[in-house]
Structures are given as structure tokens and as C-alpha cells.
Design a protein around this nucleic acid. Structure first.
Length: 1015
RNA sequence: GCCCGGAUGGUGGAAUGGUAUACACACAGCACUUAAAAUGCUGGGCCGCAAGGCAUGUGGGUCCGACUCCCACUCCGGGCACCA
């Protein structure tokens, strides 16, 4: 009887739902595992075969983790604000909320059809006012901490559609909707100061277990570069009161090559640079300049950033800059290859050592001066075909002469600082986050503008935050959806909503009509899952919100410590702090296990923390564990003596993908092990340990004379599910979110951590990515190409288990894979085969006699099967952990083939096989589990244990090589000694033939594997 | 231009520096069947009668031994892009 997937899948999906099998419990008795996938935008097209690749992968992981005894949280929700629903509303008049609700229905049905083990009781929806209440709350906190501000920023404006466009809607500089050209328009918008977190966002990456490409992309995106800010005096502007030696007016530049300042032969400013306006009167060729600026500003981004384009510019006549090092007056040009956005909007041009300056100087015949010589002391750089960008030694640079580039940089910065004409500076490519959208279907920004409060209020510009108890500020209901043609949000058209009262003075005021971007709701949803229905969600932050300044982690930590001290008395806090730990998941666990450490603090913060703790009398006992600190290659390196767990850690370091590996010194690892921490990057991450400590230790403490009320609050605080579930243990999602979503959410999490609302400074411990699923022919699936594969049809024909398993089997998880419906067949046959084996077992149980014969005839073969089973347990267990799902499935297939060939299998061998199968194909596994006489869901069973004894091979094929080429193999027992192996090899007829009487030069034996005879 | 990935049979792909091509698809042959489907079994990298030789994008190198490590390149995919 073939396996009836339709009936079985329905049956078990109902069972899981009725028995809340996947509901996560907030009870902290078990260790937690929080698996997260990117919650989908519920589009009108329904689920796409690409979505389930990520979902199934983490479903496999979390199902295994449940069976391994973890308390698993695997939630799902809807990122439901967004453009398509709004566009649909414009077209048809259907309210976005209606469309959204319908689409969610479709998605939900499809996800449930796939048997994904989500905890549906924690479903969240960003468009739900109970949800966006807290999105708005976060915005208010950002505003109160000075991290949200209004500024003029360019929006993409489509003049024919009369609407502001999101970046995603601009394709090749044209409007995605009508195909017409897009203009830039300046508009006052809310901005978030993500740049203030740039350093921490970069530095803390090193402690996170993200796949390397994600870290690299994030670092590149934020683009940290170190250099100097240099002031170039403007001698034409007379400032008599400062004397002729001093100038009040400067043109400031940013450069990463301050060492080449002696080679700066001209300056370039951006067409938007304020200097043009400020000194208009002095510029003698004003008309020419104005014409150029006008032309440049009309160019689109595309035109301006086209690298192939020849550089253009105009010299400013009547105004010069003075090179503060050479004291020469040099011309100032305006050119559109310099942008106002980056640095100071002005550069010192060093044509000999910058390719762009080189090209520009060549075109306009500007002087070049070589100041970095690669062949020093041979000064043989007479002519340049292109700029020399590399390092070298300085020449023609006065006091820098003869210095290597790195030295020259240090020296010149010191000189600049000493003379007050410059300083060391770090610049980022990262810009502040434009947070306003001129849309209806987004979270309303809870701000009100009041003319009257403009002067009185501490906020200055008249923007007043709504009080927290006025949240959520709900979107107004609309009957007819209208587009505003002024570039404003459709909300601006709703006079009743716009007109309001000022929350501060009660006078008449107007509401902010822009809404938040799509990224807002997804920047904190992973926290909401911890307590999705909590009406006082972030209120727990109140306890220390007032005493904490943003970025002031120490203060926050000490506030907590002090609080505890008053409650418990210092002697009653047993608290171990360790410095400079490697903070990856495994290592932290190992270290905690080894040393019973409660908290990890890194580098300089550790020293600082110790100082304060000593001063405050917190420290009762100090101990140094024999770590030595040395400096090597600019890195601070800590060396730890060998420990009993050395082997395990060593293995982890070798197999880990952390960049720590790059600094790993294998030579010294022979004697112990070590790793380095770059000297520059020190930052306190993972205060997690501290919170864990509080949660674990506090409830056990007895005889505490404490203020009952505070105690209750503290208890409540510690018991908050957020403290239990955060951070996310494992987050999987697409590479397309490596920068924006990941950075925005890390930024918000860090901010919330700083104000005491989030328990950890990082949201995700581990981040992995899946490859895209492509249509046949390697193209992206898209509606317009008509090549989208719908999971509904596949599931109807082959069932959810086949679908899931195929998605896991189709290729390496992190690489793109082409969908091929034909490939499903193999997986489907495999499941049918497994079913047949299961049926044969059940049949043999009915007729006792045949059961016995099966067993006795199997006795001799079962040793092989048991061995294979244990090898498979190991493979599948490891492969799931490392996301090698395709090889895990192959291993299961191989075992099934073997079981089939053996002609029968014992129940006790088949059961663990079904368990190994269950994360991939949960429905059939549940059915077989029941058929084998087990009660309840297989999810509640215990993951099979790998027994190395049983997995051990007794015989191996010894490979015999001559000069590295395989010439023979011979079966030997596994414990064969190297000497015996050598003898076996030389005794082989085939090897003898190759030797033809000669004596081998050398014989290499790889124990238990091969013998290579070298002639 | 810069930064990440990737390239292995007819196809998707597998291989801690140690038997290249596991597993699956497709194909061919056989068995079961009146027949088909389903299922099972067998086969195959290429050249060669064989001995053997040649094969992991290309060309070099290290090594007793390289898909794996190093150097130089080609093509494909992704990201950034006048970032000073």
C-alpha cells in the first residue's frame, strides 16, 4: 500500500495544532534555543518556492533542538506594512488593511500546509496597532535621546505620478510605475542617527557568529576610513583682527592620505559646497561658476556617478587656498566628482597619488608633485602614467622626507594637531537613516508640531513628542484613498487627523503626516515574539531609564550593581567576572562551564570596570589565572595555558569560520592556544552574562532584607520573557538583507540595550544565509517572466514532506539552486521506500512466527546495519548543525538503501532512523512513529545518541599506491600497524609488478588508510 | 575599478591534503506483467582489445600524493562604486 501523504499530512497538522506541540514555554527550566527566520511580507502572489528554503532549514534545526532537550522558540509573523498594498489601494480603492488581511490568510494556509513547526500562538503583525504601539514607543525614545531629528534630505519624486518614491521603486533612475524620469526634491524628513553607533556596529561584529560575507558586507557598507581633517587657510579673505598670521576662514578637507599633503597642488569643492555662497562676492568668474553648478545639480545621480564620464570642473577665480605645509597658494576648483555627502565636501587634490585627481589634473593641466616614492632612496619617479597609490617613502616633503608612509601619517597628524590646523579623523560611508515616507500604509510618527512651543520647549524646533500614554497613535480610517500631489503623505489630506492639540501647551497644533519606513517594524520584531501580547511590553525599561544615558553602558551596569548592593549587601553577591573572552556561542558556554563565570567584559572595559568595582568595594577577591598578555603585530594577544578542554576548543577554533582564525598562531598552538584581539576594537558586548546571572542567582538568594516593592519590580523585571529569550540563537535569512535590515535592527537593539529595554547589546548570536532558488535556466523567478513555481501545486502532487526534503536536498544550502520539478521524484521515491520498510515491520509484528524468523536470519547482518545506523546518526546530527542538509539527506537515503538490501530491519534500528528523518519529513515520521507503537508526537522523543563504539569499522580497505597513484587495494583489520601495512603493500602482486625488482626509495604509510611506495 | 562567492559526469551535486565522481535525476539493459505503470536488479567519466593513459574552468608551483594549499589568469553570479 503506497503512502497516502494527503491524509497523513492533514492528520498530523491537526494533531500538532490541537496539542500545541510547537508552543514555546517561557519556563526557564530548560536551556533555550531561539531560531528565527525573516518574517515575510505577505504579498498578493502568495508563497513562492524560495520562502520555504529558509523556513524549512530552521524548522529542521529547531525540530532537532527540541528533540535534543532545548526549549525552542520558532516564531512567525507578518511584515505587513508596505507599498504593494498601498498601490493596490490606489488602483482599486480597496483599503490596504483588507488586502493585507486577505494575503496573510493565504500565506498562513500555505505555511501550515508545509508542516512548519512555528509557534502560531506568538504570531505578530507589524500593522496591528498593539504592535506598532511599541514601534512608535521606540521612536519616541530615540527622539528623547536626540537620535531622531528633522533635516532636509532628498526624496525621489516622480513628476508624472506626483508621488515620492522609495529607493526600491526607482529602477535605472526611472519610476517603476510609469517609467518616467525621477527627480530629486529636498524635503524635511525625520532622520535617525545611526552614524552615532557606527563604531560599535563595526567593532562588535568580531564577536558575532555571522557568516563571513555578511560581516564583510556590513563593514564595507559602513565604510570606516581613518585619516585626518586638515584646514587650508583662505588668504584672500581678510580678517584683520586675527592678524596676518592667523586666518579665521578655512577650507576643511578630509583625507586618508595626510602624508601626501606636501603634494596637494589644488583644492576641489563640491558644487553644493556652502563656500560658494558665502564668498560669492569674492569670486570674479561668478557667472561661469554659477552655470557649472546649475548644470551639475541638474544631473541625475546616475550621470554624476558614472565612472566612465570625463571629469569636469571650473576654477574659482579671485579666491585661493594656502597649503599649510608648503605655504603656497593653490587654486580652488569646483567639480562634481566631489560630493558634499562625504567628508567635508571638499578635498585637497594630490594628483600624483590619487587617480581621480590625476585625471582631473591632466585634463586641466594642473601641476603634479610626487611626494611618495616606491623606490626610495632612489628617487626615480620622473613621469607618471597614472597616479601612484601605493605606499613608499616621502620625498620633497620637508620634515617627512625619508619616512615610510605609515610613519609619515603619524608624524603629519601630530604636526597638524600641534599647529591647530588639523586632527586625526575617522569617516564613515554610512549616513544617517532617512526615516520618513510620504505614505499612508506605515506607522504614523507620533510627533506634533506646535508653533507656540517652538521657543519654550527644550526640543527647539517646535516638534513635540506625544506622551507615551497616547500610544498607539492609530492610522485614521479612510473611505477613499487619495494621492496628494504635493509630495506629501496622503495623511496630509485628512484635515481632521492633521489638526490636533499640542501635548505640551494644549494649543492648536498639527500632526506629522509622514509615516515610518518598512524597515521600522522589522527592526525589533524578534523581541516582540518573546511576549507578543504583553500590553506593557517595554515598560520594564522604566526602572533605570532615567538614570541611563545612551552609550553609557558602565553607568547602567553600575546602577544595577548598586541596586543589588542595597538589596543584598555586597558580600552576598558571588559574582565572577572574566576579561577578554572569546564570545562565540560555544566558547562562552565552555568557559562558563570551566570557570563558572557570570559575566564577560572585554579589553579596556574590563580594566575600567575592575577599577570602579575596586573603588566601590565590590571586589572581595581577585585572582589571576595565569593569562599573559603580549603585543604582536599591533594586536593584543592573550595566551592561555593548556586546559583539559584544550582539544575541544582547539577543534572548534580550527573548524570555526571566525576571523579569529586568521590571527590564530598555529606554531604557538602546539604548546597551548591563543588568539588575539585587535588593539583598537574594544567594546562591551554581551552583558548577557550579567542578566543571566541575575535571573539564575537572584531568586535563590535567601534572607534578604529588602524593600518589598523594589524587590517585586526587580523580580518582575528579571522574569520578563525578553530576558529569557534574547538574543536570538540562530537567525537565517537572505543575503539581500545583509546590510540594511541587519544594520537597522542591530542599531535599534543596541539603542534599546542602552536605555535598558533590551537585555543584550546584540540581537543575533548567529546569522546564516540561504542561496536563492532560481527558475530553470538560472533566472530569478518573477511574475513578469511567468516562471514562478507555486508550492501549492507541488504539495498537491507530491506532498509537503517531499517538497521540504527536496528543498533541503537540491544543493548546498548557501548557494543558489535551480528549481527542477523532476528532482522531486527521487525524494518522493525515497519516502515511499521508507514507508514500505515501515510497513514490512508492522506486518512482521502481526504474525509472530515470521517476526522471529526475520530476527534470527538478520542477526548476522544486523551488526553492519547497526554500524551504518550510528555512522548515519553522526552524519545527520553534524550536517544539520553545519547546514549541510543535502548530505544529511543523502546519508538517510544510503541507510534506507542498505536497510532495504538487508531484506529487513529490527524495530529498534528503524526507530532511530525515523527520528533522524523526522526534522525533514515530519508527517511521515509521525505516522511511522505511531505505527511502531510509540505514543504521542515524535517531537517529544529524544534525539538518537551516537555511539562511537558501535560506529567503528572492523575492516578497512587499505589503499596501495605507487608514486601517488592507486595500484591496488587490500582489505585489512582496522587496527593494522604501520609496519604490517607496509609489509602488506610490498607483498601485493600488483605492487611487485610495478617495483619490478627495484628497491623502493621511500615508503609512506598513512595509518589505517594507505601506503604509498615511492620509486 | 574594488570587495565577496562559484566553476567537478548528460543534469543537480559528494569528497578533515590520501581510492575523484557518494546520493539523486536522466539514460541503457534485465526481471516481474497479457501490457503499461509501479517496484527491484545491473551498467556507465573519457580514450584503449588489453596493459595502461587522460580527466575536477586555464596555466604554473609546493608535496610521496592536490578538487582541496600557494601564484597568475578566464568565465559566471552577487555586493559597492568619483567615499577623497
Amino acid at each position: 500500500m503506497p503512502y497516502n501523504f494527503k491524509r497523513t499530512e492533514k492528520k498530523w497538522q491537526k494533531y500538532w495544532k490541537d496539542h500545541d506541540v510547537f508552543a514555546a514555554s517561557d519556563d526557564a527550566a530548560k536551556p533555550k534555543f531561539y531560531g528565527l527566520i525573516e518574517f515575510p511580507y505577505p504579498s498578493g502572489h502568495g508563497l513562492h518556492v524560495g520562502h520555504p528554503r529558509s523556513y524549512t532549514a530552521l524548522d529542521v534545526v529547531t525540530r532537532k533542538k527540541r528533540m535534543e532537550g532545548f526549549n525552542v522558540l520558532f516564531p512567525i509573523g507578518w511584515d505587513a506594512f508596505g507599498l504593494p498594498a498601498e498601490q493596490y489601494a490606489v488602483k482599486t480603492g480597496t483599503h490596504p488593511a483588507v488586502t493585507t488581511k486577505k494575503n496573510i490568510g493565504t500565506f498562513k494556509r500555505q505555511l501550515q500546509m508545509l508542516g512548519l513547526g512555528f509557534d502560531w500562538s506568538r504570531e505578530v503583525n507589524t500593522t496591528d496597532s498593539e504592535y506598532y504601539h511599541w514601534t512608535q514607543w521606540i521612536f519616541l525614545q530615540l527622539f528623547k535621546q536626540g537620535l531622531a531629528y528633522k533635516a532636509k534630505a532628498a526624496i525621489n519624486w516622480c513628476p508624472s505620478c506626483k508621488i515620492g518614491l522609495a529607493n526600491e521603486e526607482v529602477v535605472n533612475n526611472a519610476c517603476e510605475r510609469c517609467g518616467g524620469p525621477v527627480e530629486k526634491r529636498d524635503k524635511e524628513q525625520w532622520m535617525l542617527r545611526i552614524t552615532q553607533y557606527a563604531d560599535r556596529l563595526i567593532d562588535d561584529l568580531q564577536y558575532l557568529d555571522y557568516i563571513e560575507p555578511v560581516k564583510i558586507q556590513q563593514r564595507n557598507w559602513m565604510g570606516r576610513s581613518e585619516g585626518a581633517r586638515i584646514k587650508f587657510p583662505l588668504p584672500d579673505i581678510k580678517e584683520p583682527e586675527f592678524g596676518k598670521e592667523h586666518f579665521q576662514n578655512f577650507l576643511e578637507v578630509f583625507t586618508t592620505r595626510p602624508d601626501t599633503v606636501f603634494g596637494a597642488t589644488y583644492m576641489v569643492i563640491a558644487p553644493e559646497h556652502p563656500l560658494l555662497e558665502k564668498y560669492r562676492a569674492l569670486i570674479t568668474n561668478g557667472t561661469e561658476v554659477a552655470a557649472y553648478v546649475k548644470k551639475a545639480r541638474h544631473k541625475s545621480d546616475m550621470e554624476r556617478t558614472d565612472l566612465a564620464k570625463e571629469k569636469t570642473g571650473v576654477e574659482l577665480k579671485g579666491i585661493h587656498a594656502r597649503n599649510p605645509l608648503t605655504d603656497e597658494d593653490i587654486p580652488i576648483w569646483v567639480a562634481d566628482y566631489v560630493s558634499l555627502q562625504y567628508g567635508t565636501g571638499a578635498i585637497m587634490a594630490v594628483p600624483a597619488h590619487d587617480q581621480r585627481d590625476f585625471e582631473f589634473a591632466k585634463k586641466y593641466k594642473l601641476p603634479m608633485k610626487i611626494v611618495t616614492c616606491p623606490h626610495y632612496p632612489e628617487q626615480s619617479c620622473p613621469f607618471l602614467h597614472e597616479a601612484y597609490l601605493g605606499d613608499g617613502h616621502n620625498i620633497e616633503s620637508d620634515f617627512l622626507n625619508g619616512l615610510a608612509t605609515a610613519e609619515a601619517k603619524k608624524k603629519i597628524i601630530a604636526w597638524l594637531e600641534e599647529h591647530g590646523v588639523g586632527s586625526r579623523e575617522v569617516q564613515y560611508k554610512l549616513r544617517d537613516w532617512v526615516f520618513s515616507r510620504q505614505r499612508y500604509w506605515g506607522e504614523p510618527i507620533p510627533m506634533v508640531h506646535c508653533q507656540k512651543c517652538k521657543e519654550k520647549s527644550k526640543y527647539g524646533d517646535g516638534w513635540m513628542p506625544l506622551p507615551e500614554d497616547a500610544l498607539p497613535l492609530k492610522l485614521p480610517a479612510i473611505k477613499k484613498y487619495e494621492v496628494a500631489d504635493t509630495g506629501e503623505s496622503p495623511l496630509a489630506k485628512i484635515a481632521k487627523w492633521v489638526k490636533t492639540k499640542c501635548p505640551a501647551c494644549g494649543g492648536s497644533a498639527t500632526r506629522e503626516t509622514d509615516t515610518m519606513p518598512n524597515w521600522a517594524g522589522s527592526s525589533w520584531y524578534f523581541m516582540r515574539y518573546a511576549a507578543p501580547r504583553d500590553k506593557r511590553f517595554f515598560d520594564h525599561a522604566e526602572w533605570h531609564r532615567d538614570e541611563i544615558q545612551p552609550n553609557d553602558l558602565d553607568k547602567r551596569l553600575f546602577a544595577l550593581l548598586k541596586h543589588l548592593k542595597t538589596l543584598l549587601g555586597p558580600a552576598e553577591i558571588p559574582f565572577w567576572i572574566a576579561g577578554s573572552m572569546m564570545l562565540n556561542g560555544l566558547d562562552r558556554k565552555l568557559w562558563r562551564h570551566m570557570h563558572d563565570i557570570d559575566m564577560f567584559v572585554r579589553g579596556a572595559d574590563f580594566e575600567r570596570l575592575l577599577e570602579v568595582l575596586r573603588a566601590d568595594g565590590f571586589i572581595i577577591h581577585e585572582e589571576h589565572n595565569g593569562w599573559n598578555r603580549v603585543e604582536k603585530d599591533g594586536c593584543q594577544i592573550e595566551i592561555c595555558p593548556a586546559t583539559p578542554l584544550e582539544g575541544e576548543l582547539y577543534a572548534h577554533l580550527r573548524h570555526g569560520q571566525e576571523q579569529v582564525l586568521h590571527r590564530y598562531d598555529l606554531e604557538r598552538a602546539e604548546r597551548g592556544w591563543l588568539w588575539g584581539v585587535p588593539f583598537r576594537t574594544i567594546s562591551p558586548v554581551y552583558m548577557l552574562g550579567f542578566y543571566r546571572f541575575l535571573r539564575e542567582k537572584f531568586p535563590k538568594t535567601r534572607d534578604v532584607k529588602a524593600d518589598a516593592e523594589k524587590m517585586a519590580f526587580l523580580k518582575q523585571y528579571l522574569a520578563h520573557p525578553l530576558n529569557y529569550w534574547m538574543p536570538v540563537t540562530w537567525y537565517n535569512g537572505g543575503m539581500e538583507h545583509a546590510t540594511l535590515h541587519m544594520l537597522y535592527s542591530r542599531f535599534w537593539n543596541k539603542f534599546l540595550f542602552d536605555i535598558g529595554a533590551a537585555p543584550t547589546s546584540e540581537p543575533y548570536e548567529k546569522r546564516t544565509s540561504h542561496g536563492m532558488i532560481l527558475a530553470k535556466g538560472g533566472e530569478k523567478m518573477s511574475k513578469s517572466k511567468g516562471n514562478v513555481v507555486n508550492p501549492d501545486e507541488i504539495v498537491a502532487e507530491y506532498g509537503a514532506d517531499t517538497f521540504r526534503m527536496y528543498e533541503m536536498f537540491m544543493g548546498p544550502f548557501d548557494q543558489a539552486a535551480e528549481w527542477d520539478t523532476k528532482g522531486l521524484v527521487g525524494v518522493h521515491r525515497f519516502l515511499q521506500k521508507v514507508w514500505a520498510i515501515g510497513l514490512s515491520l508492522r506486518a512482521s509484528k502481526k504474525t509472530k512466527q515470521s517476526h522471529k524468523t526475520v530476527i534470527s536470519s538478520e542477526r548476522s547482518e544486523s551488526r553492519d546495519l547497526i554500524r551504518s545506523l550510528h555512522q548515519t546518526i553522526r552524519t545527520v546530527t553534524d550536517d544539520i548543525e553545519s547546514m549541510h542538509f543535502n548530505t544529511a539527506v543523502s546519508a538517510l537515503m544510503e541507510l534506507a538503501n542498505e536497510m532495504q538490501k538487508a531484506g529487513g530491519v529490527l524495530k529498534k534500528q528503524f526507530k532511530p532512523f525515523v527520528q533522524l528523518l523526522s526534522p525533514f519529513a515530519p508527517h511521515i515520521a509521525e505516522e511511522l512513529w505511531t505505527a511502531l507503537g510509540e505514543k504521542g508526537s515524535i517531537t517529544h522523543s529524544v534525539w538518537p545518541a551516537y555511539n562511537p563504539e558501535l560506529a567503528r569499522e572492523e575492516e578497512i580497505e587499505l589503499v596501495l599506491q605507487v608514486n601517488g597513484k592507486v595500484r591496488d587495494t587490500v582489505t585489512v583489520s582496522v587496527g593494522i600497524s604501520d609496519k604490517e601495512a607496509e609489509a602488506k603493500a610490498l607483498a601485493s602482486e600488483k605492487i611487485q609488478k610495478w617495483l619490478s625488482g627495484k628497491k623502493p626509495k621511500k615508503v609512506i604509510v598513512v595509518s589505517g588508510k594507505l601506503v604509498n611506495v615511492v620509486l
